[in-house]
């Protein structure tokens, strides 16, 4: 079959357009329905973490413990504000991302040795250890009651909460676009392409002179940083952090969102996150006693009929158009 898809530059443009469309939707929805602003902000936080998980999935690595980095990010934000007195939104986001990145680098150094089920379980184990610590160190972390996250200033300006929420929502949307484009470039760079090669044939990759462990360490560190950034956004959006952020079901949700959205393109994680959060919100609205079932059925439908995820559906439509 002759290659009739978009060129590399065309593909890049496509991702830009898709992300911009997502951004427009993320800004437009809350204009129509104000309370959705919060849902969108939290969804972007989840989307960032799911993007990290999706990157690992490209390399054939399933992490069912990535909520660990969301929690590290969220609690880092809480502690930076409480103990260090850091009170500036953007500084908080940068520092938190750096802290989670560092923790990802350290833990990743061990993780890079493992594959398949061992990788998945080890991640799960570490995230549950962190969950237990957060719950047990009552005097430090507030235990299961969690910790308060105050409203930070924005560029030195103290905003009232409603304006702050708006700024946070816009910042989250902007971050989504910028980060997603950077990750897109990364995935299309040799270091990113090596990821797919690890999934396909790791031994051959080593023969080509590329260190598989190095590739995995890099992607793991980046994915941790993404999850941490997502955690920081979630923490300031909600204003409260709880140990459940690190619980294994939260990690499972991230994998679900990644698969739901599709891992073949960067926008997939965000499409998945928006879809998941919106379905859950409306399911809880219409059937308050059976929202779990509705979410479950929606996921089953996607998994059965759209194995490539929602993003895969988008690409399929595009391919068909190109063929016509």
């Amino acid at each position: 079959m002759a290659y009739s898809g978009p060129s590399v530059f065309g593909a890049f443009d496509m991702v830009v357009w898709q992300l911009l469309a997502l951004a427009v939707a993320a800004m437009a929805l809350p204009v129509a329905v104000p309370w959705l602003g919060f849902v969108i902000t939290v969804a972007i936080g989840k989307g960032l973490a799911a993007l990290g998980v999706a990157m690992l999935l490209r390399g054939g690595l399933i992490s069912i413990g990535h909520a660990l980095y969301v929690a590290v990010g969220a609690y880092a934000t809480a502690f930076l504000m409480l103990s260090v007195g850091m009170n500036e939104l953007f500084l908080l986001l940068v520092c938190t991302t750096a802290i989670t990145m560092a923790s990802g680098l350290v833990i990743g150094a061990f993780m890079a040795r493992y594959r398949a089920i061992f990788f998945a379980m080890l991640n799960l184990a570490i995230s549950m250890v962190f969950f237990t610590l957060l719950s047990k160190l009552y005097n430090l972390t507030g235990g299961s009651d969690g910790m308060r996250v105050a409203t930070p200033t924005v560029l030195g300006v103290t905003l009232d909460r409603t304006k702050f929420d708006l700024v946070l929502q816009f910042s989250a949307v902007a971050l989504m676009v910028v980060v997603a484009l950077l990750i897109d470039r990364y995935l299309k760079s040799p270091l990113g392409e090596a990821l797919t090669a690890i999934h396909a044939n790791e031994v051959r990759l080593e023969y080509l002179g590329v260190s598989a462990r190095g590739v995995i360490l890099a992607v793991y560190t980046i994915s941790a940083a993404l999850a941490g950034l997502g955690g920081a956004i979630t923490a300031v959006a909600i204003g409260h952090v709880v140990p459940e952020l690190s619980y294994w079901t939260a990690s499972g949700q991230l994998v679900l969102i990644a698969v739901l959205g599709g891992i073949s393109g960067v926008p997939g994680a965000f499409i998945g996150a928006f879809f998941f959060e919106l379905v859950r919100t409306f399911a809880a609205d219409f059937v308050p006693d059976a929202w779990n079932a509705i979410v479950g059925v929606a996921l089953l439908i996607v998994i059965f009929f759209l194995p490539q995820g929602l993003y895969g559906l988008l690409q399929r439509v595009k391919m068909r158009k190109a063929r016509l």
Binding site: F38, V39, V42, T234, I238, R280, T281, A284
Partner: peptide
């Protein structure tokens, strides 16, 4: 549903 969703609701 968890704290996230409770705040959203």
């Amino acid at each position: 549903q968890g704290t996230n969703a409770v705040v959203a609701e």
